[in-house]
């Protein structure tokens, strides 16, 4: 898994609440058997008319060249619905490293963390401030300091992450590395409860 430390970047604003994983990656693209290449179908039905890449929808933010960056900023309850990890893969594959919202659905949050995509929960007030910024403004996310900073104003917001997950992301470890080393303890547990 990729390490995450500090990211300074412009961001893509998506001030829509309850963005579900069916929008992030529609079910018809879940037929793949690898984790790669989902980025081109990210928000497919919001991005293109008639499922046609030559017909981008002008009003959708990913089709605006003025917006760019490695940070996606979205309305509350982001990633609700289906547990499909393909949603996290698609966001990562498209080039985002961080998603900021005021509220994440549980399964999406876990899926993101398991793929080195950092979900950051901020206050509603701070989220609204981000939506007011201009496309050229940049944010600095520090996982070590657990802060998001609006570079222009220097305004900072802290975020929470459990210390275990933080260590994993900073070093690029995943849970499987940890769990495999636990196999003996797991076997003992099985014998105890049997």
């Amino acid at each position: 898994m990729d390490k995450i430390t500090t990211i300074q970047s412009r961001f893509v604003p998506m001030p829509i609440e309850n963005i579900d994983t069916d929008q992030i990656i529609p079910a018809r693209f879940l037929k793949a058997t690898t984790r790669d290449g989902f980025g081109k179908n990210l928000f497919r039905d919001w991005r293109y008319s008639n499922d046609d890449e030559s017909q981008p929808k002008a009003d959708f933010v990913l089709n605006h060249k003025i917006y760019s960056g490695e940070i996606l900023v979205a309305g509350k309850n982001f990633g609700c619905g289906s547990s499909r990890e393909h949603a996290a893969w698609a966001i990562k594959d498209y080039g985002f490293k961080v998603v900021i919202s005021s509220f994440f659905a549980d399964i999406f949050k876990n899926n993101a963390l398991n793929n080195g995509l950092l979900p950051i929960t901020v206050s509603d007030v701070f989220l609204q401030q981000l939506f007011q910024l201009s496309p050229a403004d940049t944010l600095t996310v520090s996982l070590e300091a657990q802060t998001v900073c609006i570079d222009k104003s220097g305004q900072k917001e802290s975020f929470e992450i459990n210390s275990y997950k933080k260590t994993c992301l900073l070093h690029g470890y995943d849970d499987i590395d940890y769990l495999i080393n636990m196999r003996t303890a797991i076997e003992q547990f099985e014998q105890k409860v049997a």
Partner: peptide, 14 residues
């Protein structure tokens, strides 16, 4: 659970 977690359960039943 997500697919990474499916892999975790395969690997460790945990």
């Amino acid at each position: 659970i997500g697919t990474s977690e499916v892999e975790m359960v395969f690997a460790s039943q945990c």
